[in-house]
Write a protein that binds this DNA or RNA. Structure first.
Length: 427
RNA sequence: GUGAUUGUAGCUCAGCUGGUUAGAGCGCCUGAUUGUGGCUCAGGAGGUCGCGGGUUCAAGUCCCGUCUUUCACCCCA
């Protein structure tokens, strides 16, 4: 084969696109019930936006971004977006949305790009659905964000998953905690693996994430960030928990759920699926009160958001057998022609009926009557109308119900209503 | 980026230690009724065996490279 899709990218074929649409429709429906409006931003941005927004030391910026120049001799550097939060905040600041609305609530369903080695549920071009709530520092917005995310999963039927919750406190909390964690780990330093040793200096919080079984004992004894929370963060966290309890949303505290970047604060959450492998995070999010300032805002702007990988959501639904029950739109009727003259009648009639709202199929290959009937059956059409010489003369057509196999003769002017009535009935 | 793994018809796969025209199921097409689907039966189309080198009298089968798939690591904002 001469051409194929590039490594880490995937085609969404017609046979399954309706499943994808189902996920999108459920998500949109929930977002809108929460009063969130869609935002669409360009797929590429000034590279500096992500350098500032994500942090220059991270792997993403270092090796996982698709960065390019608009022209060979340009000084400009552009990057395909590896995430949405920076873009949304940029748009918020650029258009002064905060000046028009005290709280801005937006959602997106967007494709993102990261140059990672592909594996299960992880592609180089992938889709996320997510939301950002900008302008409130209060726990109500955290709780609402989590509730919204959970409602989407719930309505899609994804229930075999655990919501993990933690609080990162404020910047000072993390400084104190990081110091405490290093103090704790220092006596065990020699027992750490190479990766953890490197993290010890760079980002000791990440050591808590290590999957190395030899380290679990050490990790289990590590101090917990929740014990280092400042008073306000603690109150905030308690409030979020109370709201979740009241809303009937189950969660488990996971003090190992951490985020390394400085603009994160307080609430962090993640939904982990039991049906997936190593890439088991379905979605997650948290509070990022420090991001706006990093992107040049003169004052801090509190915000909270979540994002969810659609490919992984898909995978989880597949594993849980949830994709099988999603109905596919089938044709209401197939118009079957038996001669060239009938072909003309069919073209004309199909067009009229489609205008009036029916889903009408017509054979485009001039196949035999038999083949057209077979096609009607394969497409799952509810009815077939057979038009041949005699029908055109008598203006009475054969109407066959392909479910019951009943066939009746119907006058031309009554055909549409006869089909319409039964199609509506069968829904 | 590291380590392993996969690649034969549209799809899922078989093909023993290298040996004649590469097979099956499903799907697709045609017919069994010159005006009718689903079931059954009978035919049929469809394959550069990922690609490029090499070894050999002979390679889908062995070797090397490359691309791709998958799994894990790194990382996951």
């Amino acid at each position: 084969m001469k051409f194929q899709s590039v490594t880490g990218t995937k085609d969404l074929l017609p046979s399954e696109s309706f499943l994808w649409q189902r996920i999108e429709n459920v998500a949109r429906s929930v977002f809108e019930r929460f009063g969130y409006a869609e935002i669409r931003t360009p797929v590429f941005e000034d590279t500096n936006l992500f350098l500032r927004g994500i942090g220059e030391t991270t792997d993403i910026v270092g090796k996982e971004m698709y960065t390019f120049k608009p022209s060979p001799d340009s000084d400009e550097s552009l990057t395909l977006r590896p995430e949405m939060t920076a873009s949304v905040m940029r748009a918020y600041l650029q258009h002064g949305l905060g000046g028009q609305f005290p709280v801005v609530k937006v959602y997106y369903i967007a494709e993102l790009f990261r140059k990672e080695r592909p594996q299960k549920g992880r592609y180089r071009q992938f889709w996320q659905l997510g939301a950002e709530c900008i302008g409130s520092a209060l726990p109500e917005s955290d709780a609402e964000m989590i509730a919204m995310m959970m409602m989407i999963y719930d309505e899609l039927g994804v229930t075999n998953a655990t919501l993990k919750l933690n609080s990162l406190g404020d910047a000072e909390t993390r400084t104190r905690y990081r110091a405490a964690l290093r103090d704790y780990l220092r006596p065990h330093y020699e027992r750490l693996d190479a990766v953890s040793k490197e993290r010890f200096e760079k980002n000791p919080l990440r050591i808590l994430d290590s999957k190395n079984p030899d380290l679990q004992e050490i990790i289990a004894g590590a101090p917990r960030i929740l014990d280092y929370l400042d008073e306000e963060s603690n109150a905030h966290f308690e409030a979020v928990r109370t709201y979740l309890d009241e809303l009937g949303i189950a969660y488990s505290i996971d003090h190992r759920l951490v985020r390394g970047l400085d603009y994160y604060s307080r609430t962090a959450f993640e939904l982990v699926s039991a049906d997936l492998g190593a890439q088991d995070a379905l979605g997650g999010g948290g509070r990022y009160d420090g991001l706006a300032e990093q992107l040049g805002s003169p004052k801090p702007i509190p915000a909270v958001g979540f994002a969810s990988g659609i490919e992984r959501l898909w995978l989880a639904m597949e594993r849980a057998n949830l994709l099988r029950n999603i109905p596919q739109k089938k044709p209401d009727v197939m118009l079957v022609a038996q001669s060239t003259k009938a072909q003309t009648w069919i073209m004309k009639t199909a067009n009229e009926w489609r205008r009036k709202g029916l889903v009408v199929e017509v054979d485009l290959l001039r196949r035999s009557l038999k083949a057209q009937m077979r096609e009607a059956n394969r497409l799952g059409a509810k009815f077939a109308v057979i038009a041949g010489e005699s029908e055109l003369q008598t203006r009475k057509f054969q109407l066959k119900n392909l479910r019951s196999s009943e066939q009746t003769e119907v006058e031309e002017e009554r055909l549409f209503d006869a089909i319409k009535a039964q199609v509506v009935e069968s829904l």
